[in-house]
């Protein structure tokens, strides 16, 4: 499936993107020969039959693990290998935080269903969940700028993943934290609510079940019964959901990365499309497909580990 999707994307990308147009409008104008000379060694010349281009590209991957070069000659392999970790740096922290906050709030509001705390938490969550990420991120940028002005020094950086020229262990950590705080906050703000709702409804189903009533009848307090009996079973579907979100960790948040100018996979994706970088586009698609497959496998493993009723024969 992954191979099929990747190859299909290759043909689709050729149908919609045109690397030649990168060079046509140049000033001084390039002659046809010059353009061909630039494109041909990069396997991007549209005078070569499509099947031949495809074979050169495909055999390069299969035999040499070479995903090709961009119209300007940069290696796609290098770009992906470098950007993948920038995206992971941003998304890992955000995913961890939003999962914990979501589950915590879910447990809180399920154990006091329809009381004030639950209603307030649910009302907040439904609003934050539906704030578009663009608005949330830019709103945070405005807040941070106001905060920086009020304090008088730059606490939060609104662009980039790190400042140039920072060395040493602790300065690097502080610098990273200053850069990572805002994008993480934006991702958490719009993302935690889905786990809140999921955890709440799952836990409510379990609180009403017989074995939790049994635990209460044994003399456990409501808190103990929820923590030791209801929560454990209701965590299983949530874990599956989190495992499925792992592909997103590496493919990244396209909008967040472009707003905060993080040079991760999401930003690469935009760059490749707007620069007609066909090899790059296909690499992003293939990467996404592989990550989806890995996420599905991880979800299965998580269920086997957590759920004693599921046994691998």
């Amino acid at each position: 499936m992954v191979v099929a999707v990747t190859n299909l994307t290759y043909f689709l990308a050729w149908a919609y993107l045109d690397p030649r147009s990168n060079y046509v409008g140049r000033r001084p104008p390039l002659s046809e020969e010059q353009i061909v000379n630039l494109l041909e060694p990069r396997n991007l010349d549209d005078n070569v039959p499509l099947l031949e281009r495809w074979w050169t590209w495909f055999s390069g991957i299969v035999f040499r693990w070479d995903w090709g070069v961009s119209p300007t000659g940069q290696s796609v392999n290098e770009q992906v290998a470098y950007r993948m970790w920038i995206s992971a740096e941003l998304m890992l922290g955000a995913t961890l935080l939003l999962t914990l906050i979501g589950i915590g709030l879910g447990v809180y509001s399920a154990s006091r269903q329809y009381r004030l705390g639950d209603r307030v938490a649910q009302g907040t969550s439904i609003i934050t969940m539906n704030i578009p990420i663009v608005v949330a991120a830019l709103g945070l940028v405005l807040l941070a700028i106001a905060f920086n002005n009020a304090v008088g020094s730059t606490i939060f950086y609104v662009t980039g993943a790190s400042s140039p020229g920072v060395s040493g262990f602790f300065p690097t950590i502080v610098d990273t934290a200053q850069h990572i705080a805002l994008p993480t906050a934006a991702l958490v703000l719009v993302g935690y609510a889905q786990y809140h709702f999921l955890q709440r409804s799952l836990l409510l189903d379990n609180i009403k079940s017989d074995y939790v009533r049994m635990a209460r009848a044994k003399g456990l307090t409501k808190q103990q019964a929820i923590r030791k009996h209801a929560l454990r079973t209701s965590l299983i579907p949530v874990t599956t959901q989190v495992a499925f979100s792992i592909p997103g960790i590496f493919t990244g948040a396209v909008l967040t990365e472009s707003i905060f100018a993080w040079k991760g996979m999401g930003q690469y994706f935009i760059e490749t499309i707007s620069k007609n970088d066909i090899n790059g586009v296909v690499a992003v698609a293939a990467f996404g497909a592989v990550m989806t497959a890995i996420g599905a496998i991880l979800a299965d493993i998580a269920v086997v580990v957590l759920d004693p009723r599921v046994r691998v024969s």
Partner: peptide, 18 residues
Amino acid sequence: HFLMVAPTFLLLAMMSND
């Protein structure tokens, strides 16, 4: 199922850009 695996956002961006 095929569309579920396919990189739909990518297709979306390419087609609407075009």
